[in-house]
């Protein structure tokens, strides 16, 4: 017997706890995921494929890729900048600044969309000025990108900050002493030290950017083939009772979620630390 048996529960209790855990995860997590693929393939592979190459679906995929590339690129670059400012220098109010960076996680997606409507919508603070200049932000891709940038704002920074804080500044200071300039220090010393954490942040940021629904829904205007991202296309098809087509498009996002989790597990093994996933 293992030494742990001194403080282990009797076998029936143990079995009951494991069964209950499996039941909860099965009912609330596994079945919904399996259901996505079952529904998507309910009319066979041909119907599945044709739902994916339908022009509106392709347009949605294209828009999602554009918005995601912009949002993830911006948040990765600015996440590096913010992490550098916060971890390489000491200044008062640092923890408050970190709280502000995390703030978008506490905001309902619907409100994240609403704030941009209030700024740039027809009735908004800058609405009249935008109309006068013929610029469209709300109900167009710039608004969708802004809302996505908002909801994915903390992902990269919050992965980098704890790691860079732990690593300190000794290596960078040594490089500066040896005459390296700031950019060289960053690319040759800092970046190699944080590349896996950066990738981890980008991965989570990417998954959220592609799958964001609430915030994007508020600013999109739902114009088919024009301002629909993949999640919005899923909603439209579902509301039109085209269930199989809706689940087929949704299965792309479910696959993305699975790939993200697998990549995340691989990265965690490399970083050697347990991360929270949100």
């Amino acid at each position: 017997m293992k030494p742990e048996s001194v403080h282990a529960e009797p076998a029936p209790v143990r079995r009951a706890v494991i069964a209950a855990a499996a039941l909860v995860v099965g009912l609330f997590i596994v079945l919904p995921l399996v259901n996505v693929f079952a529904q998507a393939l309910s009319k066979g592979w041909a119907a599945y494929a044709s739902a994916l190459v339908e022009p509106d679906a392709l347009a949605a995929i294209e828009l999602t890729l554009l918005v995601t590339a912009l949002s993830v690129g911006l948040n990765a670059a600015m996440g590096l900048v913010m992490a550098w400012a916060i971890t390489k220098f000491s200044f008062p109010g640092k923890s408050f600044l970190i709280t502000l960076i995390d703030l978008p996680f506490s905001v309902s997606p619907v409100i994240a969309g609403l704030v941009f409507v209030l700024l740039f919508g027809a009735q908004g603070f800058f609405g009249g000025w935008l109309i006068d200049n013929g610029w469209k932000i709300i109900f167009a891709w710039p608004g969708i990108t802004l809302a996505t940038v908002f909801v994915t704002f903390p992902f990269v920074a919050r992965e980098l900050i704890p790691l860079m804080q732990e690593q300190g500044t000794a290596e960078e200071e040594a490089a500066v002493t040896l005459g390296a300039d700031g950019w060289r220090v960053f690319t040759r010393v800092t970046l190699p030290n944080i590349r896996w954490a950066l990738l981890y942040g980008v991965l989570l940021c990417n998954a959220r950017a592609m799958g964001e629904f609430g915030a994007v829904s508020v600013v999109s205007g739902h114009v088919r083939g024009e301002t629909n991202t993949i999640p919005l296309q899923v909603e439209i098809l579902y509301n039109e009772y085209q269930f199989q087509a809706s689940f087929a498009v949704a299965s792309l996002l479910a696959l993305l979620a699975i790939v993200t989790l697998l990549a995340k597990a691989a990265l965690e093994a490399r970083i050697g630390a347990r991360h929270r996933g949100h």
Binding site: G214, V234, Y238
Partner: peptide, 12 residues
């Protein structure tokens, strides 16, 4: 649930 987009979870 962290990784699956909310709309997908909703319809599923």
């Amino acid at each position: 649930p962290f990784a699956l987009p909310t709309a997908v979870a909703g319809i599923a």
